[in-house]
Simulated scan of single mutants.
Amino acid sequence: MTQKPMTKTQLVAALAETADLDKASANRALDALTEIVTKEVAAGGAVSLPGLGKFACRARPERTVRNPSTGEQMQKPADRVAKVTIAKQLKDVINA
């Protein structure tokens, strides 16, 4: 069941075919979507893509972590991470 992920070139070609666009327009649309989602999530907001999921930024508090090679305990400062929640509609399609 493991297969290679779709490349950007393949995604642009599929998007162009499905939306009846030329590849240059599909590439610009994909780049614009990526830029919009990146800016919004980096600013601390969230973006919901209907049928796919929700991209959000989550703050993680300072915590104690362990270096696996030495076993040394150290403090990791607070940081922010991107979180993706998959939409129920996509889960249902995958598990059907």
Rank of each mutant, 00 (worst) to 15 (best):
M1T: 05
T2Q: 14
T2D: 12
T2N: 13
Q3E: 15
Q3H: 12
P5S: 06
P5G: 02
M6V: 15
T7S: 09
K8Y: 01
T9E: 09
T9L: 05
T9C: 02
L11K: 06
V12I: 10
V12G: 05
V12Y: 02
A13K: 09
A13R: 06
A13N: 05
A14D: 08
L15I: 14
L15W: 07
A16C: 11
A16S: 13
E17G: 13
E17V: 03
E17I: 05
T18I: 09
T18P: 02
A19K: 07
D20P: 02
D20T: 05
L21E: 07
D22E: 09
K23T: 08
A24E: 12
S25H: 13
S25T: 15
S25C: 14
S25I: 11
N27S: 15
N27T: 12
N27G: 14
R28E: 15
A29Y: 11
A29E: 06
L30D: 04
D31C: 09
D31N: 12
D31V: 03
A32N: 11
L33T: 09
L33D: 03
T34C: 11
T34R: 07
E35S: 15
E35C: 12
V37C: 11
V37D: 07
T38K: 10
K39L: 14
K39C: 12
K39N: 15
E40C: 09
E40H: 06
V41C: 10
A42Q: 14
A42N: 13
A42H: 04
G44L: 11
G44T: 10
G45Y: 07
A46M: 06
G51K: 00
L52C: 05
G53S: 07
K54W: 04
K54D: 13
F55E: 05
F55W: 12
F55L: 09
A56N: 03
R58K: 12
R58N: 11
R58T: 12
R60M: 08
P61S: 13
E62F: 05
E62Y: 04
E62D: 04
E62C: 08
R63I: 08
R63H: 12
R63S: 07
T64L: 10
T64C: 08
T64N: 08
T64H: 06
V65S: 14
V65A: 15
V65P: 02
N67L: 02
N67C: 05
P68I: 03
S69F: 04
S69K: 10
G71V: 06
E72D: 11
E72T: 14
E72V: 14
Q75R: 10
K76E: 15
K76V: 14
K76W: 12
A78Q: 03
A78H: 04
D79T: 14
R80H: 14
R80E: 13
R80P: 11
V81N: 05
V81Q: 10
K83V: 15
K83P: 04
K83S: 12
K83M: 11
K83D: 10
V84N: 05
V84Y: 15
V84S: 09
V84K: 03
V84E: 10
T85S: 08
T85R: 06
T85H: 01
I86D: 00
I86E: 00
I86T: 04
I86F: 03
I86H: 00
A87E: 00
K88L: 00
K88N: 05
K88R: 04
K88Q: 08
K88C: 01
Q89N: 00
K91A: 02
D92K: 07
D92Y: 01
D92T: 08
I94H: 02
N95H: 04
A96K: 03
A96W: 00
A96D: 02
A96E: 01
A96I: 00
